[in-house]
Simulated assay, not measured.
Amino acid sequence: MMRNIPYGKQHITSEDVEAVNKVLLSDFLTQGPTINKLEEAFAQYVGAQYAVAVANGTAALHLCALALNVKAGDKVITTPITFAASANCVRYAGGDVVFADIDPATYTIDIAKVRALLEASPKGTYTGIIPVDFSGYPVNLEAFRQLADEHGLWIIEDACHAPGGYFMDSKGKKQMCGNGAFADLAIFSFHPVKHIAAGEGGMITTNSKALYDKLLLLRTHGITKNPDLLEENHGGWYYEMQELGYNYRLTDFQAALALSQLSRADAGLKRRETIAKKYDEAFARLGIIKQQREAKHHNAYHLYVIEVDRRKELYDYLREAGIFSQVHYIPVHTMPYYKKLGWKKGDFPLAEKYYERCLSIPMYPSLTDEEQDYVIEKIKSFFER
């Protein structure tokens, strides 16, 4: 029988189905009480003061850019090794994206490259930074916060890959991804292959009450019924559109699924760590595969990325064996849209070298030991041919 082992996969349990079914049979399908429960639980999980549930991770990024008043002429720095939405959110708001190359050991944005960009231009040239916790590996946001403060910049942490991930700060304190200690805003995704699957969905976390209030307004068409915010009040039916907002709401039944999944997040993370450790040991013995290097950071392992020679051959070989690996990511600056804006191949050699060799192999909590052994066996057999 042909196998089908994807690089990532959702895991839906009977408890998840029951949670969704309960909401489907209730009075609320769109904006109901389950959304508030999810927001409170998620804020507690990552250690932030506030959380705002939204339609997806891209909507989360867009709302963050709007809440921080990104506008035409603003220049925002991000990494080329990410999903396009990390950069696109700046363009949605009319700003300009500037890329900085990656650290070849961690595959995340290189703070030294960001510093060089900032110091090569007059203060005020740039307005913000969007670091990405790529594959689940947490960026050292304490260092980025210090750099941002020197230059008057805001930070949006793209933590879509990293719920449950953390790094140890200079005082030895655990800093959870998305806790708001160093970033102005952080975003997460509830796409099916992520840690918490809701079909679609996303979350924004922050410790700023002002940003929280603005996000709530922007999420729902810029409309409020809050009596304390209304300029006039004609009665219980009255509402006001105070900003040009969007319909970026999450539904109550999606929130129910995400909340149920969140209850198993720690168990899922532990399983991901076990899978990663087994890969680490197997490939260390092989000696010809490069892996993402660990520091004092706790990787959430959304992805397990390897670097290999003959990447395309290995990809095809695994596919023939029923193992569907993936490439994360094609450097954003090489996309036709960004090439039209002046970026070109050769601008970021480390990101481009990484892209030529990277491969994401199966990593998800329901991956069985037998399936993982099969993946390892096939990768070994490829290199031993």
Rank of each mutant, 00 (worst) to 15 (best):
I187E: 06
P227D: 08
P104Y: 11
V46S: 05
A295M: 11
P122L: 07
D149G: 02
R272Y: 05
V46T: 08
K378M: 10
A72V: 10
S208K: 09
Y126G: 06
P6Y: 07
H234V: 03
D74L: 03
L153R: 09
Q31V: 14
A255H: 09
V98M: 14
P6L: 04
D280G: 00
R272E: 07
V305K: 02
N179W: 06
G222L: 05
V139Y: 12
A321T: 03
S381M: 08
K71I: 02
V46N: 07
Q31A: 13
M363N: 11
L68D: 10
G180I: 01
T82K: 07
R319K: 15
D228R: 14
A55T: 04
R249E: 15
S366W: 01
L61T: 03
N299K: 08
T78V: 01
N69C: 10
E15P: 01
G201C: 03
A181Y: 06
Y248C: 07
I156P: 07
S86V: 12
E142T: 05
G57L: 05
D213C: 12
E352V: 01
H297M: 06
G172T: 04
E200P: 00
L141F: 01
A84E: 15
Y338A: 06
K214H: 13
R357T: 12
A162Q: 02
L314A: 09
E40T: 14
D316T: 06
Q49W: 01
I361H: 04
I196T: 05
E313L: 10
L269Y: 14
A41T: 11
T58C: 00
T58L: 00
T205W: 11
S189A: 09
K75F: 01
I109T: 08
N21Q: 10
I323D: 06
K340T: 11
F99H: 10
E157R: 15
A162F: 00
I155F: 07
R311M: 08
G245S: 04
C177F: 00
Y246K: 13
A43K: 13
D133V: 00
D309F: 05
D16E: 08
F188P: 01
L215Y: 08
S366E: 12
V98F: 09
C89L: 12
T82C: 11
G47R: 11
E243F: 04
A65D: 02
E200W: 13
K174A: 03
G342V: 11
L350I: 09
M1R: 14
L29C: 08
D266E: 15
E320L: 13
G128I: 00
Y329D: 14
A51W: 02
T78M: 05
A143L: 15
Q372F: 00
R319T: 12
V76N: 06
R145H: 10
F190T: 02
W237L: 13
Q49I: 04
Y239R: 13
P365R: 09
G95H: 03
L185K: 14
K113F: 04
M168W: 12
G322I: 02
F383V: 00
